[in-house]
Amino acid sequence: MPDTPPATLQRPPEPVRGDPPAPRRAAWVRPVLLPVAVAVAIGAIFIGVYLSAFHAPAARDLPVAVVGTAADAASVAERLPGHSPDSFLLEAVPDRESARAAVEHGEAFAAYVPGHGTAELLFAGAHGPAVNTLLTGSFEEAARAGGERLTAVDIVPASPEDTRGLVVFYTTFGLVLAGYLFGIMTFQLGPGLTLPRRLASLAAFGGAGGLAVASVVSAFDVLPAPFPGVAGLVALVATAVGAFTMLLVRSLGVLGSSAAAVLFMTLGNASSGGSLPAEFLPGWLAPLSTALPVGVGVRAVNGLAYFHGDGVLGGIAVLTAWTAAGAGGLFLLERARRRRA
């Protein structure tokens, strides 16, 4: 009887023809399918967020001052169009001067001043055409219901060169995109840079970017804001986005750049208030306007240009926190990796 060959010498079963071995399949499945999954997910998130925010935008609790008592404000609220009962939040103020100051400092979007036969609406055209149309149309109807004729007065007009009310958004968002790209490129072009040199590059990018944007805005004369203020705020937006993108890319790799795109380019852009104020956003998205660098930067630049600095100090604090979080996270990550090495 012949000896049975050892098991170690037996020939393994041949793979089915046309079916590559498992290791070879894994080698191409990930680079082929993972980009598809990530790109489709980002596109779906983008469309979902924008449709949720802008398919039928409606104001919610838009603050408006009413000269008079609380009963006067309630009376005006009852005369507003019935199709938008929650669109406005009316607050009584004692006199016309207080109402005007509230509008000029960004505390109210408009002020309604009742009169004898003629009512007055003080509004800020710098908030954009959509807001102005809603305010004048709604309060004209309220005045008519009260037997009054409405006179609308734009006491904070936008720059005459800014006919669509988008200059503040473009001024701010340009370096959001640039900051996102910087956070990716710094690792692609300088993978061996030390952390101090990388942060020095970030600071140089923010400073140069702020000066460049302020110079372009000044050349077009489209924003009534001081050059140093615009340059400083835009530089802070750029460094905040750049620093945190660097942290995400360094910690998550390719997925980090996708996360940064969703965070800053999709959620940040949609909640920025650039096209419509945060009061027009759905409830789940509105809080991001005061937390993400884009919305914070838009409000700060808008306040610097039109509303006596409304939002500037808060914007500086939030943008500095984003920058510190990104730089501090990079420092801790690099230190942990050196210890493991």
Rank of each mutant, 00 (worst) to 15 (best):
L121H: 08
A235C: 08
D72N: 04
E141L: 15
A300D: 05
D86F: 07
A200K: 04
A231P: 11
G179W: 11
A130D: 14
R299G: 04
P2F: 07
G283H: 12
T323D: 06
P6C: 02
P5V: 01
S75T: 15
L80K: 05
L292I: 06
E104N: 02
T245W: 12
T4F: 00
M246E: 08
A324V: 13
R338N: 11
G295S: 05
N302A: 13
G183V: 02
S52A: 14
G206M: 06
L267N: 04
F307S: 00
R335P: 00
P13W: 11
H116Q: 13
D310Y: 07
V64P: 01
G210A: 00
T151H: 10
T8K: 07
R250H: 14
E148S: 09
L281W: 04
G165V: 03
L247F: 10
A7Q: 08
P35Y: 07
V16D: 07
T163H: 10
E148C: 03
L263V: 10
A143G: 03
G128P: 03
G314Y: 00
S52P: 07
T69Y: 07
M1L: 14
E140T: 14
L330H: 07
A291Y: 01
L236E: 02
Q188R: 14
P57M: 06
P23M: 12
L122A: 13
I316G: 11
F109M: 05
A142K: 06
L9I: 00
L263E: 07
A73F: 03
P23L: 11
S84A: 14
L313I: 06
D154C: 00
L248M: 13
L62P: 01
P23H: 13
H116I: 07
A259I: 09
A212L: 14
V213G: 09
A142W: 07
G315V: 03
R338M: 11
T320A: 15
L80Q: 00
S251Q: 10
T8N: 12
A77C: 03
G314F: 02
P63E: 06
R17W: 04
T118A: 11
T4D: 06
G232L: 04
G207Q: 02
L332T: 10
V254Y: 09
L281V: 02
S289C: 00
G314A: 00
A214H: 11
L288N: 09
L80C: 00
G128D: 05
E107T: 03
P2M: 07
P2T: 09
G165A: 06
Q188H: 09
E279P: 02
S138H: 11
P81G: 10
A261N: 08
S138G: 05
V153T: 13
G207L: 11
A26V: 06
A158E: 10
P23F: 10
V32H: 08
P85V: 05
E97Q: 15
A119E: 01
R79A: 14
L288V: 11
T136V: 13
Q10V: 10
G117E: 10
G190Y: 09
Y180M: 12
Q10C: 09
L62F: 01
A39Q: 10
A243D: 08
F187A: 12
A321K: 01
Q188N: 05
G128W: 10
A286M: 07
G311A: 14
L304K: 02
A200P: 01
A204H: 08
P12T: 06
N132A: 15
P196A: 01
D154P: 01
S75R: 15
F139H: 03
V318A: 10
P287H: 03
L292T: 01
E78K: 14
V168C: 00
V262K: 02
Y170V: 14
I47T: 15
